[in-house]
C-alpha cells in the first residue's frame, strides 16, 4: 500500500515547507514581472506632465522610442505615471524624471527601432539631418539636377517646438479635445 496511515500526514507536514517556498518564489516572480514592465513612447514627442491632465505643468518632453518604467495609473486609466531614465531626456541633466504621460502615447511593444544611435533631428529639426553624401551629389550632377531644392525642403523638417505649435493650432494629435479616452472604448 503506497500510503499507510502515517505517510499522508508526514507527507503533508513536510510538503508544507516546500509549498511555502514555492509560494514565495512564484510571488517574487509575479512581483518582479509586475514591477519591471517597460513601456515605450510611440510618438515623436509627448509632454511629461506633473499631474494626470494636459493642463498640468509640463516637466519635460519625452522623445520617440524612449523607454520608461510605469509607476502607477490614474483613476480613470487614461494616464500613466512613469519614471524616465536621466540620460534619455535630452537637455536635462537632473535626476530621473517622474511624471505623467497619456497612456495612448505609450506602448508595451517597442517600435521598430531606427538603427541610428541618436536622432538629433527629433528635437532640432531639419538642420540636424545628415547631409547628402557624395553618391547623391554625383547622381544629381549626372541628372543635371540642382540639390538645393531638395536640401531646402529637408531643412523645413520642423523642430519639436514648431511641430507642437502646429498641432496645437489645429487641435490635432494629443491636442485634440476628443483624444481617445481609454474609458471610451477606443482601445484596440
Amino acid at each position: 500500500m503506497p500510503f499507510s496511515s502515517t505517510r499522508p500526514g508526514r507527507f503533508v507536514r513536510h510538503g508544507w515547507a516546500g509549498l511555502l517556498a514555492a509560494t514565495l518564489v512564484v510571488f517574487a516572480a509575479g512581483w518582479v514581472a509586475g514591477a519591471t514592465a517597460t513601456l515605450y513612447l510611440r510618438l515623436r514627442s509627448a509632454p511629461v506632465t506633473s499631474g494626470p491632465s494636459f493642463g498640468s505643468e509640463v516637466k519635460a518632453m519625452a522623445s520617440a522610442h524612449q523607454a520608461c518604467s510605469p509607476l502607477e495609473r490614474s483613476k480613470d486609466g487614461d494616464w500613466v505615471k512613469v519614471r524616465l531614465a536621466p540620460e534619455a531626456v535630452k537637455g536635462e541633466k537632473s535626476e530621473a524624471i517622474e511624471g505623467w504621460i497619456h497612456a495612448t502615447a505609450l506602448t508595451e511593444k517597442p517600435l521598430p527601432a531606427e538603427s541610428d544611435a541618436d536622432c538629433p533631428w527629433l528635437r532640432d529639426g531639419g538642420k540636424a539631418l545628415p547631409e547628402p553624401g557624395a553618391a547623391v551629389k554625383e547622381h544629381a550632377s549626372r541628372r543635371r539636377q540642382a540639390l538645393k531644392p531638395l536640401q531646402d525642403a529637408e531643412r523645413m523638417y520642423p523642430t519639436q517646438k514648431e511641430l507642437e505649435a502646429f498641432l496645437k493650432e489645429g487641435n490635432l494629435g494629443l491636442y485634440r479635445p476628443d483624444w481617445p479616452s481609454l474609458e471610451g472604448g477606443l482601445t484596440r
Binding site: 510618438l43 515623436r44 520617440a64 522610442h65 523638417y157 494629435g173
Partner: peptide, 20 residues
C-alpha cells in the same frame, strides 16, 4: 512639410523624418 512631419510623428516610425 509640417503636415508631413505631424503625420510621421504619429506613425510607427516617429524617428524617421518626413521631407516633402
Amino acid at each position: 512639410n509640417r503636415i508631413a512631419a505631424a503625420l510621421a510623428a504619429y506613425s510607427d516610425r516617429p524617428a524617421l523624418p518626413a521631407t516633402l
